[in-house]
Every structure is written in structure tokens, then in C-alpha cells.
């Protein structure tokens, strides 16, 4: 791809101070996102996976500027083709780009106002962006509801009248109201039943093709991520430990953590035996991460060097990056 990426994230950090005592002194930091770099090309989907607490939500909230990053750059290519850094941008200036970057949540109910009809819920971003005429908004909301596979007449109903899958469609319609270029979806199908999950995933794929959307898709379910992503980034304790095109990552993982995550996914075939060697222990606290490689206390391949020397994220094969001293030399099984 010759075109510049839509988003380029460089050295992104988000630390939450730990304040203690009467004097509210800062005694340390939760390093929730600790030096994350990636690019997102227009029209592609980057999947972000990892166990809970790895910093996926915090990273995506930084990109949306729902929270202020501690450090780093979020370089965004505007419609006009210039590149701006969203990271330090004051809210007033950010308002210009708000419409272009939208969010789909895990719990669509949390993002919908129960006392407002779909017309007002889905139309709210339009109003914020200056569409003053209620009639214009109703026309646009009707189109949006059709786009996500709901009947336009539903616009006069309230959110509680809809099932989980329908609510997620409403959440998607709302996110698309302002014709965004980038949609950040944080666990958008995690709370849905399998059959509904398939419907919503298909809808997201179809909308992406029709509207040339770019997705940052956060999920802990590797099967879902494999299904929707062009490339996948695996996070562990605030850092990306592996980043690769989807098929490369799944057929030949280069980081022991990625391989362990894959092994933990139960295969929906009783003739395949359960994988042995389950990953022990838990994700360390980002307030007090281990020395050296953050994964070393749980890593079956750890060597003495791993406890003292932090590995860098290296490109091992074209487009395939891993943060492990021995990436490429280990015998890791893919899916």
C-alpha cells in the first residue's frame, strides 16, 4: 500500500497515578499502556487481543481521546490529506475530527439513553454535528436503520423494546451516523449469543466493504478476531508482544504468549483432544510488572536472560513483529 496510513500510533503511553493517603501523594503508576506502536491503513481491520487487564480498552480510549494519553503520538491523516497529531490536541480542536472517529461498545445498552427513542439516540451525534432539522435527522436515521438491517419504523420505539443483537445494531447505526472513517469497536460481540454474534460480525464486514471503514477491533476471543481482522496485535501488560497479518499469526505464531492463547481456545470438535500445557498464573499487575520480559514468570521457554533483559519488538518476517529474544527460533504450534 502506497497511501499513508489512516492512523499511526507511536510510543503511546497511558499511566494512571496511584495516589495514597491523606496527602494524596503519588506512590507509583499503573502502566496500563506502555509504549504501543501500530499503524492502521484505510479500509483494513486491526484486531487487538489479550487477556483482560492487558490494556486494550485503555489503548482504544486514548485513540478516541476519551482519555488523555500520558505520552506518544496519534498521527491521523485527515480527509484533506494532511497529518495531525491527536494526542496533545485540545478538546476544542479535536471537535473537528470527532465525527470521523466513532466507537461501538460491548454493552450497547450503556451507550443508549433509555428515555429517548431510537430517532433521538441514533440522531444525537447528528444534532451535535449541526444537523438542526428534526426532519433531516429522521430521514438520515431511517437510512441508518435500514443500513444495519432494522426497520425504519423502529425509530419511534425505545431501546428496551429490542433484543441484545438488535441493540448492538442500533449502537452500530449510531456510530455510523456521522459517516466516520475509523470505528473503534471494544468487544462488540462478546455479550452476544453465538447465532446473534454471527449476524453482527457479518454486518460489520458488509458495512466495511460498502463504506470503506477502518476498524480497530478489540476482543478477547481469538476465533472472532481471526474471523474479522486483516492484521492482529496481541497485547500483554500494556505492550504489543506480537503483530502480524492474520493468517501468518495464526499459522505461525512467533511469541510464546500468542501460542499459549491459541492453545487455550477449546476446539469445537470432540475428536480433537484438549491441548495440554495450559498457561499457568495470571496477568501481572501493570503497577508492578516483572523485570526483563514481562511474560517470563509464565513463559515455558524462559531463559535466565529473560528475567533481566527486556526484549524489543522486532520484525522477524515481513510485517510479522514479535517481542521475544528467541522469536523465530522456538517451535511454536499455530492453530
Amino acid at each position: 500500500m502506497t497511501e499513508a496510513p489512516l492512523i499511526e500510533v507511536r510510543g503511546l503511553r497511558k499511566f494512571f497515578p496511584i495516589v495514597k493517603g491523606f496527602l494524596q501523594r503519588t506512590t507509583g503508576n499503573v502502566r496500563a499502556v506502555d509504549g504501543v506502536d501500530f499503524t492502521l491503513n484505510e479500509g483494513e481491520t486491526l484486531g487487538l487481543v489479550g487477556e483482560s487487564g492487558c490494556g486494550k480498552t485503555t489503548a482504544s480510549r486514548c485513540i478516541l481521546r476519551a482519555i488523555d494519553p500520558t505520552a506518544g503520538q496519534i498521527l491521523y491523516r485527515t480527509k484533506g490529506g494532511e497529518t495531525v497529531d491527536l494526542a496533545p490536541m485540545p478538546q476544542r480542536e479535536l471537535a473537528r475530527y470527532r465525527a470521523e472517529i466513532q466507537m461501538v461498545f460491548q454493552d450497547p445498552f450503556g451507550s443508549l439513553n433509555p428515555r429517548m427513542t431510537l430517532l433521538d439516540n441514533v440522531g444525537e451525534p447528528l444534532l451535535v454535528n449541526g444537523m438542526k432539522s428534526r426532519r433531516d435527522r429522521a430521514d438520515r436515521v431511517a437510512d441508518l436503520l435500514k443500513l444495519v438491517g432494522l426497520r425504519p419504523e423502529f425509530m419511534h420505539r425505545f431501546p428496551h423494546a429490542f433484543s441484545g443483537g438488535q441493540r448492538q445494531r442500533i449502537g452500530i447505526a449510531r456510530a455510523l451516523a456521522t459517516e466516520p472513517r475509523l470505528v473503534v469497536a471494544d468487544e462488540p460481540v462478546s455479550a452476544l449469543d453465538v447465532s446473534v454474534q454471527a449476524q453482527v460480525l457479518n454486518l460489520l464486514l458488509e458495512l466495511q466493504q460498502r463504506l470503506r471503514l477502518t476498524y480497530l477491533f478489540v476482543a478477547h476471543d481469538l476465533s472472532v478476531v481471526r474471523h474479522i481482522s486483516d492484521r492482529v496485535a496481541v497485547m500483554y501488560v500494556g505492550q504489543i508482544v506480537e503483530l502480524a497479518p492474520t493468517n501468518a499469526l495464526f499459522s505461525r505464531p512467533l511469541h510464546p504468549y500468542t501460542a499459549a492463547l491459541m492453545r487455550a481456545v477449546p476446539v469445537p470438535d470432540p475428536r480433537v483432544n484438549p491441548a495440554d500445557g495450559v498457561l499457568r498464573g495470571e496477568v501481572p499487575s501493570p503497577a508492578n510488572p516483572p523485570t526483563g520480559c514481562y511474560f517470563h514468570p509464565r513463559c515455558p521457554f524462559a531463559q535466565p536472560r529473560c528475567a533481566v533483559e527486556a526484549p524489543a519488538l522486532r520484525e522477524i518476517a515481513p510485517g510479522h513483529h514479535a517481542r521475544c529474544h528467541f522469536a523465530g527460533d522456538l517451535a511454536l504450534a499455530g492453530a
Partner: peptide, 24 residues
């Protein structure tokens, strides 16, 4: 229908999944 509709870790990337039509 349930068995067809699940994405798997071995599955094809970016192809529509067969769905159960309608809703519960």
C-alpha cells in the same frame, strides 16, 4: 445451524458466516 454459525480459530478470515435467520 448452531454448529455452522460459530467462527473458529481455524476458520477462513473475512468471509461471511452462515447465520440462523431471524431472532429468538
Amino acid at each position: 445451524a448452531l454448529l455452522r454459525s460459530i467462527p473458529t480459530i481455524h476458520g477462513e478470515t473475512r468471509t461471511p458466516l452462515p447465520v440462523i435467520s431471524g431472532s429468538l
